[in-house]
């Protein structure tokens, strides 16, 4: 079991919380405290919008231990609207075709059990095809 690691990573996993560089405004995910763009210190938290698009993808049929009960599943490189490209599972895509450039949005889903049915449940970000963008309606007249 890896309880300390799951606990340490909860904010980035649950809510896509990364960092923004105070020197060059580069958006960083996962958070790493040193800006990969300018090399200066970056510790300001930044919550990503969760919107992005599929940069590339593949479907896993032979899953690693801990993920086998949900195989087959699709993993994608997702280019977030704010810049970074991250690796994540796609979800809610059964019965529909995944395409490069497809708009996706972050949802928090169950990733796996840590160990067996006695271990903690691990939740993390996944991406699904974007739902219809809600339209704000205004009072008539």
């Amino acid at each position: 079991m890896e309880i300390p690691r799951h606990w340490r990573l909860k904010k980035q996993r649950y809510g896509l919380v990364g960092e923004v560089c105070p020197h060059c405004d580069y958006k960083i995910f996962p958070p790493r405290d040193v800006c990969p763009n300018c090399g200066d210190e970056a510790k300001d938290l930044f919550t990503f919008s969760g919107k992005g698009q599929v940069y590339s993808f593949t479907t896993i049929y032979e899953a690693p231990t801990g993920y086998d009960s949900s195989a087959p599943y699709t993993v994608a490189l997702v280019k977030l609207d704010e810049g970074p490209i991250i690796t994540a599972q796609l979800t809610d895509v059964e019965g529909s075709s995944v395409e490069i450039g497809m708009p996706v949005e972050m949802v928090t889903r169950k990733m796996r059990d840590d160990g067996d049915e006695r271990g903690i449940l691990v939740y993390s970000y996944k991406f699904r095809p974007s739902l219809l963008v809600p339209q704000a309606h205004h009072p008539a007249g």
């Binding site: 649950y14 809610d92 949802v107 889903r109 169950k110 449940l121 939740y123 996944k126």
Partner: peptide, 13 residues
């Protein structure tokens, strides 16, 4: 619910 959904994930959304 899908395989990766439960009361926690649904409540979050």
């Amino acid at each position: 619910p899908g395989l990766d959904e439960d009361v926690i994930t649904m409540s979050i959304e």
